[in-house]
């Protein structure tokens, strides 16, 4: 019985070794994460400005909504960056 337990222990140890060795490898590649974050900030701003511009065109209130949504866009962009950096740090 003790031999079996020993074997089990050995298997577990090598399994853990495999896990720590092979899992995150390319996930925390610094270049990959840099590419990932850089666009997040701009993309939300772009979407928000588009929404603001469209609402303005619809309601004929030229600069008001585009200004409001600009701030929303910045906030959403920062939120995105914080989220993706959190994810990268977790790996």
């Amino acid at each position: 019985m003790s031999e079996l337990d020993d074997l089990k222990k050995k298997i577990n140890i090598s399994k853990n070794k495999i896990k720590t060795k092979f899992l995150p490898s390319s996930n925390n590649n610094p270049i990959g994460s840099a590419f990932r974050i850089s666009t997040e900030l701009v993309a939300s701003l772009f979407v928000a400005l588009f929404i603001g511009w469209y609402v303005d065109k619809w309601l004929n209130t030229k600069p008001i909504f585009i200004i409001i949504f600009f701030f929303f866009g910045v906030a959403a962009g920062i939120l995105n960056v914080v989220r993706s950096t959190k994810m990268i740090n977790k790996d």
């Binding site: 850089s38 666009t39 939300s44 929303f72």
Partner: peptide, 22 residues
């Protein structure tokens, strides 16, 4: 909620612009 919706809608933009720009 507005911020979250904008952040959700920005996903396809950031996904496509990243690949395209690089």
């Amino acid at each position: 909620i507005v911020i979250e919706i904008i952040s959700y809608l920005s996903r396809p933009i950031s996904l496509s612009v990243r690949l395209f720009a690089n």
